[in-house]
């Protein structure tokens, strides 16, 4: 009887340790910011500015921006200006750094592009990460929506997906394809935007 009780305690201890380990693998949730005063239903047209690229892959931000624009348009809630038109607006206004436009530049963009908001972004991670023998793709992106009337930030959120999971460590799989991880990140951000 005592042996059974000891075995049960050991068993429960193992389970607790596994649970704690699992929890420690989950990335901490980063809260998003939504301006409570903003009427988001008034945002009909947006311009997605080129994303700031903090990764070693030169084309990564353009890939993610292209995927984001397509997925945002596919929601059928907001119309997204074609990238060529955004580039034309940036040239006409003379935005010095399109990735981080100033308030004055954003209000000028409103007049040229006739958009209700602009979306800027920072791509923080894009590529494989390694830990020991395990390797997996990771994408980390943060976005901001700035309304063009006053140039104030009305929404800001970030998301990180992919990375090495416990399964990758145990079985040595190479993680998910980069496209799938990118789609997950964008879906997560769109969920935060429309929730």
């Amino acid at each position: 009887m005592k042996l059974t009780r000891n075995l049960l305690v050991v068993w429960l201890g193992c389970c607790l340790q596994l649970c704690m380990g699992g929890c420690s693998l989950m990335p901490p949730a980063v809260p998003d910011y939504t301006n409570a005063q903003m009427d988001f239903s008034a945002v009909r047209t947006v311009a997605v500015m080129p994303f700031q690229n903090l990764t070693s892959d030169d084309q990564a931000s353009e890939r993610v921006r292209d995927a984001f624009m397509g997925m945002l348009l596919a929601t059928e809630q907001i119309y997204v200006l074609p990238p060529g038109e955004v580039a034309r607006g940036v040239n006409r206004v003379g935005v010095r750094i399109p990735q981080t436009p100033t308030v004055e530049e954003i209000t000028k963009l409103k007049a040229v592009l006739e958009v209700d908001a602009v979306i800027t972004g920072v791509l923080r991670e894009y590529g494989p990460v390694r830990s020991g023998s395990a390797e997996a793709n990771l994408v980390s992106l943060s976005l901001q929506m700035i309304e063009t009337q006053n140039g104030t930030v009305v929404w800001s959120a970030s998301s990180t997906k992919g990375g090495i999971t416990a399964v990758d460590r145990l079985l040595g799989s190479g993680g998910q394809p980069m496209n799938d991880v990118t789609t997950q990140v964008i879906n997560d951000l769109l969920d935060q935007l429309f929730e």
């Binding site: 074609p82 990238p83 060529g84 038109e85 955004v86 580039a87 034309r88």
Partner: peptide, 10 residues
């Protein structure tokens, strides 16, 4: 010259 695809003017 379209560095980022055709604009609406194009």
């Amino acid at each position: 010259i379209m560095q980022a695809g055709p604009s609406l003017a194009a």
